[in-house]
Nucleic acid binder design. Structure first.
Lengths: 197, 197
DNA sequence: CGTCACATGTAAAAGGTTACATGATTCG
DNA sequence: CGAATCATGTAACCTTTTACATGTGACG
């Protein structure tokens, strides 16, 4: 039940509407918690009912009324409790790795295609995250930043994302290399996706 | 809908009962796809109905009859198709990182506790995965292995796991270091989990 | 004139977790 | 004598995804 805490965490940064929050989940928060806009709208309603956030109505001309949400004291208390509670290990679920697991039974070219696409995605995310890191550090060195800032959290998670994406890219490229070398050293009896009866 | 493919992937290694499969998911496959035994029993039934696996009844004395499942040709074809299809990016969901994101609002000591526990889990998994790697390589160097083997897939995914766990451990320890240095350099106004009214 | 940004949701379906149920055998 | 291993499942619940619904204003 922890979409709830991801939303609260996203609101620490400042008040936001559901729509704005969705964008925060697309860039920053999305690195450690995915959620679709629909989920956010629903969760915000629940959080409001439970008084962990307060909502300010902002009428729009020619658009649905917008609601700006911000943390209440109860909301902050909830976060404090959450951070102290034992955490479940992340539950891994990666289709690509499932496909790689069966590399020996499967069409190599298609697999390599999938690995390249993933590598490209990782590079894209890396670029975004490095921009984010730059804007967090704001010209300071890490050492200075850590001593000065009141916003260590976002920096820590941003670094986490950077390392993870770099790791992903490295692994994809390495796997591609091995699969290719295997093709080069001659492989027979490979089943292909297009093989008909 | 890809628990299905994770199960098929696990069966490439050889026939298994639901119970045995649950163990494969605990060790090997679990590194990239989690599933509870109940899910596996249900999925195996479905796969059997769809004729992607065949089932051999094995009566037990004083125990529920056991079913040994193995891949059919249709099952292998399904895997081939799956491996060629475009893959969704992994959906990140990590409670610990959510907690770290709000480090600045939250009790540092408790957070550090959570980070240490995660680091310890990562070290444990690393040990297991390195044993697995050793048994896969079977004394050969990577180069020799890659040229000789018909089981590249499991090696690739095992390496993925190793790198990921190593990365996790490094990040946890690094984050702990920064959080501690922040305590040392004097921090005030930290909300603690035990603070009452 | 088409597409993107804004701004909210509802409803059904799929996927995953937790709790419960049963019961013999082996090991320390 | 208690715990772990073997061996299967059902049912209720919670979470996530997908599809649908609505409509304006700005930009090129």
């Amino acid at each position: 039940m922890s979409l709830r805490h991801a939303v609260l965490a996203a609101l620490v940064h400042g008040e936001a509407s559901g729509y704005e929050l969705a964008k925060r989940f697309d860039v920053g928060v999305g690195n450690f918690w995915h959620a679709r806009p629909q989920q956010l709208y629903a969760e915000l309603t629940r959080l409001h009912q439970d008084q962990l956030v307060r909502a300010t109505e902002v009428p729009q001309r020619s658009r649905p009324t917008k609601y700006l949400y911000s943390l209440t004291d109860a909301g902050i208390a909830e976060l404090v409790e959450f951070a102290a509670a034992p955490k479940k290990p992340t539950s891994a679920r990666d289709e690509l790795t499932v496909a790689v697991q069966v590399a020996d039974v499967v069409d190599h070219a298609a697999l390599i295609g999938n690995l390249s696409r993933r590598a490209a995605q990782a590079r894209q995310k890396l670029t975004n995250l490095k921009d984010m890191e730059k804007s967090i550090l704001g010209g300071r060195t890490e050492e200075t930043f850590v001593r000065t800032t009141g916003h260590l959290g976002p920096y820590l998670t941003c670094r986490r994302g950077i390392q993870h994406e770099a790791d992903t890219e490295r692994w994809c490229e390495w796997a591609i290399g091995l699969l290719r070398s295997r093709i080069a050293s001659g492989d027979r009896d490979r089943v292909t996706a297009t093989a008909g009866p």
